[in-house]
Design a binder for these strands. Sequence first.
DNA 1: AAGGATACCAACCGCGCGCCT
DNA 2: AAGGCGCGCGGTTGGTATCCT
Length: 285
Amino acid sequence: MGRPPCCDKVGIKKGPWTPEEDIILVSYIQEHGPGNWRAVPTNTGLLRCSKSCRLRWTNYLRPGIKRGNFTPHEEGMIIHLQALLGNKWAAIATYLPQRTDNDIKNYWNTHLKKKLKMMQSEPQLAGDSATYHQFMTKPPPYGERAAADENNQNPSVYASSAENISKLLEGWMMRSSSPNQTSAASNYNDDRSKFNQFSDRSQQIGIGIGHDELDCILSFDHNPTAGLDKSSCDSSQKGSEGSGLVDSRGKIEGDDHPPLSFLEKWLLDESAGHGEGAMELPSLF
DNA sequence: AAGGATACCAACCGCGCGCCT
DNA sequence: AAGGCGCGCGGTTGGTATCCT
């Protein structure tokens, strides 16, 4: 028996999502919460597969997602967790609640795998943790925009999902109102005002994202370390199911972590003690 | 300046698991 | 108990951006 397609292929749109589609999806999820993905395309009229909707939400639109460069600490966590768990990106992502499994997977494939390969080709580096740290944190020789931007603390680097929503909303509002309104801008103040616009507008159209929630989201953009303390946003996130740091799968707050108490302890200690500071190799492995 | 090479990342695809009937 | 269905996960691809020659 062949497996039936997850959704009717006829009339299903593929490829990049448009701002309009994002708006529709976000507003629907804000109203109904994530889940029941099968019903999303039919209820919203989106010509997208349910899978595509879920993916778009979890990897891009979900609030609390930190995008852009990974901190050395995050790198360290990924490396160790990957060594321990293998390519269980979803499991790894539970320890990095601001990152999506897709993001981690991409980062591993494009950056870390390469770094580790270089490590293996220069094994003398591995024996010296200070050198290792230097090696792990130095930017790769080529095309490492993220690492360069890290030093600038460029707000646009930490582009949260809210910023994405803001951007798409900006375009949406430009179309739906005056065509000569704001052009694309990336500085903090512009973002700030866009967030306020978005918040106001969202209230009007019933999406229901308040200023507090946007403030919380903004804090991820401009204070990356704050993300490690997820309690900082709990109050404003609790109300919206699956829209907080905890993804729709609810893995973070649950007790279903893998039995990694030793590692877990280290990770928690690292988070508490180091923030995004220099990664140091624990003597665990 | 232009074309090729490389890097990055959003999105797709197919499979497996678990729940429900 | 078995099959159907929906969701989640991991691997992969394709488009775009950036860098190099």
